[in-house]
Computed example of a mutant assay.
Amino acid sequence: MSKAVSALGGVSHKGFVEVSEAGLQGMITVRGDLSSAKMKKAVKAATGTAVPEARRIVIAGDKAAAWMSPDELLILVPYTEAVATVAALEEALAGEHHIVADVSDARAMFRIKGAKASQALLKLCPVDFETLAEGEIRRTRAAQVAAALWKSAEDEFSLVSFRSAAGYVFGALEVSARTGSEPFPA
């Protein structure tokens, strides 16, 4: 059996903010009726959270549920728990129209940390970071690549992209975070 590795091996760059690949992360796409009792119970069992409202991410320790569309969630769990979580979700949703897919190895996650983290991101993403609240998620673009991002902590954002574009995304983040390139240097 091969050993799982993250897309970029945990690469990081320190500029006016720090950008880094977050490493292996369990990610599961769940599609179905988000308002059904079975779905709510399955998500609660898998993550310890409720099904999030539109454009929200609900985090409980090292697990989370993120709203991606009216019929889609992104479930975040430790990488080593993804396969078991998929099986548990499949069992909990049996008999109900749904799709559950482990997309852990098809995605990459990045962290953007620092007091000016939003400045690095605003050069790449058409998002109003001044109004983006903690716990709010956006599906958007990072330069020319589809991405999802949220404010994961004070002065920190998490960004998810396709693994196939991880090098491109990290390169764009690294250039955007270079010291002296702050859009609002004051």
Rank of each mutant, 00 (worst) to 15 (best):
M1C: 09
M1D: 13
S2F: 05
S6G: 05
S6Q: 03
L8M: 13
L8S: 04
G9P: 10
V11N: 05
V17P: 00
E18V: 08
S20M: 10
E21S: 10
A22C: 13
Q25H: 08
G26T: 02
G26L: 02
I28N: 00
I28L: 04
D33I: 08
K40P: 06
A42S: 13
A46E: 02
A46S: 07
T47R: 01
G48F: 10
T49N: 06
T49E: 02
T49D: 01
P52G: 02
V58M: 07
K63A: 08
K63H: 11
S69R: 10
P70I: 01
E72M: 14
E72N: 07
L74R: 09
I75N: 04
I75D: 03
P78A: 07
Y79P: 00
Y79V: 00
T80Y: 11
T80I: 08
V83M: 05
V83K: 06
A87N: 12
E91G: 04
G95F: 14
G95N: 13
I99F: 13
V100K: 01
A101D: 04
A108W: 06
A108R: 01
A108T: 12
M109F: 11
M109D: 07
R111Y: 12
K113Q: 10
A115M: 12
A115Q: 12
K116L: 14
A120I: 05
A120P: 04
L121S: 07
L121M: 11
L122N: 03
K123I: 10
K123A: 13
T131Y: 14
T131A: 14
A133Q: 15
E134A: 11
G135K: 08
G135S: 11
E136D: 14
E136C: 11
I137W: 06
I137A: 10
T140N: 04
A143H: 14
V145W: 14
A146W: 12
A147I: 06
A147P: 03
L149V: 00
W150S: 06
S152P: 01
A153Q: 10
E154D: 15
E154H: 15
E156F: 06
E156D: 06
F157Y: 15
S161I: 11
F162E: 12
F162S: 11
A165K: 09
G167M: 02
Y168G: 03
A172H: 07
L173N: 00
E174L: 13
G180W: 15
G180A: 14
A186P: 11
